[in-house]
Design a protein around this nucleic acid. Sequence first.
DNA 1: GAACGCGTTCCATAGAGCGGAACATCAGCC
DNA 2: GGCTGATGTTCCGCTCTATGGAACGCGTTC
Lengths: 257, 257
Amino acid sequence: MDELFSSALNQSVQRAVSLLKAFDTDASELGVSELARTVGLPKSTVARLLATLEHEGLVERVPHADKYRLGFLLVRLAGRVSHFGDVRAVARPVLARLSEQSQESVHLGVLDGAEVVNVDQIAGPHLIRETNWLGRRTPLHCAANGKAILAFQPEAVIARVLAAPLARVTPLTMTDPRLVRGELAEVRERGYAWTLGEVEEGLNGVAAAIRNGAGEVFAAVSVSGPAYRVPPARIPSLGELVVAAAAEISRRLGSRV
Amino acid sequence: MDELFSSALNQSVQRAVSLLKAFDTDASELGVSELARTVGLPKSTVARLLATLEHEGLVERVPHADKYRLGFLLVRLAGRVSHFGDVRAVARPVLARLSEQSQESVHLGVLDGAEVVNVDQIAGPHLIRETNWLGRRTPLHCAANGKAILAFQPEAVIARVLAAPLARVTPLTMTDPRLVRGELAEVRERGYAWTLGEVEEGLNGVAAAIRNGAGEVFAAVSVSGPAYRVPPARIPSLGELVVAAAAEISRRLGSRV
DNA sequence: GAACGCGTTCCATAGAGCGGAACATCAGCC
DNA sequence: GGCTGATGTTCCGCTCTATGGAACGCGTTC
């Protein structure tokens, strides 16, 4: 067990959280037995944990069904996740406009260590259910957001990121640091980054870097969609859109470059 | 204790959730001792629960400080709160535009029983920290959102809501059903509702009803702000904005009225 | 240097949490 | 209508998890 203190972590709380995580699927309503199978616990244990989570507001019963779904306390607490809160608030209207213009999903990613954290997401207008990237971390070397951010980091940062083994997330992911370096140079030249099935097969995207008040690149805004709606031929025009959106967000954050 | 089963609720999980709830303040970064005082538990118990929550991603350590804050798993799971998810996704670009136009906070509320649940919120551009309404429920008879929704409910629903004792949330809250009925008639006439310090002292707001594909009113969009920025004189012009926004959202949801 | 408050760590103990078993209900099939 | 399988609910004996008091090191303030 991963012990942070000499005393173990709290098993009951871990189990309860694993139940919450079990709802992180497209099937957002789950029954007791299904949850028991998913998390590998007896039904009575799951039932008791669900009763507690329901009482506290983290899950709720689906009306007229013997199923549960995530509760509204999560939305409330998520509103208090203050990390990146300011940039999210500032960016949100621009993201909304970008979603309208591009007619695709739009994301805001922020540099966090050697990864990008997706801190906001506006779904496209299409009916096909999309991946929920909120809260997920993606590596810098293959996500459009990540490449847009990495390209404008100090050389020491780029070297450190590329010195580590680069994960092959899909068969199309570049893992040769020299190839990644070459693409980062092209990103700086074009002003935007792109990904073609490198993070998720069949998913393409374009991103541009966002600067803070000191002019440093710390975030990126991106547009993404399935390859049949976002083919390579569409990258340049989407590139212009994301560059304009990123510039607007940067300006609002006080950047003068 | 509120026991749903003969077996009690899980104390450890309740304690862990009470810690999460303790972060639901304007002071979003808290230390072990402060949290121990807030929730009334020994520091060692709090430390161990925090370690578990951190390990699972529900809280995180603030870099270079001995404090904790809410973690990003909350954002991720909140994105999975599917109840009202579709209307949130549809409404969000319109809310963003409305926030730009009004330069105030904007909210999306949905009818849930005899209350309104605030399911989305876009903060205004001002620096003053605003109340986090996300996930909170407000009574129908005094919130702008609530009045906008209630005014267009079937008479049986209105009668049932007004038959119950109306809570006096602030000294300005109307609690006489006849006065509320009169104002609902005026809401139908004007097309928008308003609140003047009835939900929170010094807070004013305007709201308009949203219809679903069947033409039924089930939600509302509102603008709100402190009384000195949203004085009564400004209600009509903000009314026009929210009516237009609500109509746009209704149209996107398939309403033909 | 002393006092104070912080976060961390340890460990003996008690009762909270566990999970197996049994039960009632419901839907589907024959 | 009867049977089967899966569901969610409830109970209770048992054990080991979770608890909290005490001690400690560290940083800050006076």
